[in-house]
Design a protein around this nucleic acid. Structure first.
Lengths: 221, 221
DNA sequence: TCTAGAATAGCACGATCGTTCGTTTTGTCA
DNA sequence: TGACAAAACGAACGATCGTGCTATTCTAGA
């Protein structure tokens, strides 16, 4: 790894941490350069534009997320254990030193949701990929017999994501000391409903008509 | 209402709409003034500082929220009907013309969660108040016999908020056409669990120890 | 209608932003 | 070791930001 690449990684590491607290737009080239003891122009040259830097931050954070959450979870047995591992590792990620301001993707989501551009596109791509991965894990939980056969994996992925968003809200904004407890209680209810018979959460199509989601691409994370 | 107050309301209306798309920090005095055909300094004089403007935006949006969601829901019968009304009106609010970029509070939450100051304080106050209101509505659903006596109202409030956060994520970022369907399915599962016997979502203290939340103040909205 | 005060406009300030350009330093490989 | 390229620097740019000051316009009450 050449010297440029080393510097680049250091920049992205610091930038990711900063973005989790101040948002992607809040990461200014000047502050970032000063923090790292670099010149503004020297740092800038690594990316060519602030927009490109933002995209690289998202990719860097996604790499870290895979290392911290996805990879360890894949070491767990298929089905419910793996789903639980995802949840616990995900909680840990939100408190990790990589993102001192809480999960970067949560912050970026509401920041980019009305700002078209490459950064938004990358974020959407990553999020859909992640939701698909969760659904796949849940689906293998069905074939393992851990979950009801008629449970809806996409709904489960959506609900799990909602639980994490609620956790972030309680933890980062409200500073609620019960945030962990709340999130775990929600998760247990989710899993219980996925096991139980009868209509409940993660249930199949109970409403007459529902709009189709955009077709999900099943690409490797 | 004097002329100054009329202008002030017009400013806040436009500012609230803008903030829902660009965030509180994204509302610049210059753009706002230009949009309204005012001078920058003339607009500025109404608030004295950008920080004060942000606080006023939050209060204005909260007023609108009460008018659009809380007040109509209070017209419904206590218990489950009122809880359902809250949910449906809340969904509607997220799509209302008052906040074209989606619920302002969701956007502000991740923007302010690591930025101390008056705006953050006001947002936290409003959010805690709202969570308390939800819990109170749920509690009256218990006394009406709609929900299990051992259900946890605070957990329900947290879970309902999570559902709304998930809806916002699916709707605003992913542009998922099934966002409404997902949110309603989650809500139905929440209500089902609140009715059903046995351990499940909105369940009482099942874990040995849980940290106490900050004491909630029960003030009028 | 006259006037005091509120409301608004105009202008300029210092700071910070992303970005460009030319130069200098540094690392790498023949 | 020497040469070439990569990397980092320094200074400056135009734009935009929030904010302060003074002058002007408007409005409401006597």
């Amino acid at each position: 790894m050449g010297k440029g690449e080393v510097t680049r990684q250091a920049i992205l590491e610091r930038a990711t941490a900063l973005a989790s607290r101040c948002g992607l737009e809040g990461v200014s080239i000047g502050h970032l350069a000063e923090d790292l003891g670099l010149s503004k122009s020297g740092l800038f040259a690594h990316f060519g534009s602030k927009e490109a830097l933002q995209v690289e931050i998202l990719r860097f954070a996604a790499d870290r997320f895979v290392q911290a959450v996805v990879r360890p979870a894949l070491a767990e047995p298929r089905g419910e254990p793996r789903v639980r591992a995802i949840f616990e590792r995900w909680l840990g990620w939100s408190r990790s030193h990589s993102v001192p301001g809480g999960c970067l993707f949560v912050a970026a989501a509401s920041e980019l949701d009305d700002r078209p551009g490459p950064a938004r596109n990358e974020l959407v791509r990553l999020q859909k990929e992640w939701m698909d991965s969760i659904a796949i894990c849940f689906r293998s939980g069905i074939s393992e017999g851990h979950f009801r056969a008629d449970a809806d994996p996409e709904q489960f992925a959506h609900d799990l994501y909602s639980v994490m968003l609620g956790y972030h809200h309680a933890q980062r904004l409200l500073r609620d000391p019960a945030a962990d407890f709340r999130a775990r209680a929600s998760m247990e209810a989710l899993l219980a409903a996925a096991r139980r018979r009868g209509p409940s959460r993660a249930a199949p199509r109970r409403r007459p008509v529902r709009p189709r989601s955009a077709p999900r691409q099943r690409r490797t994370a």
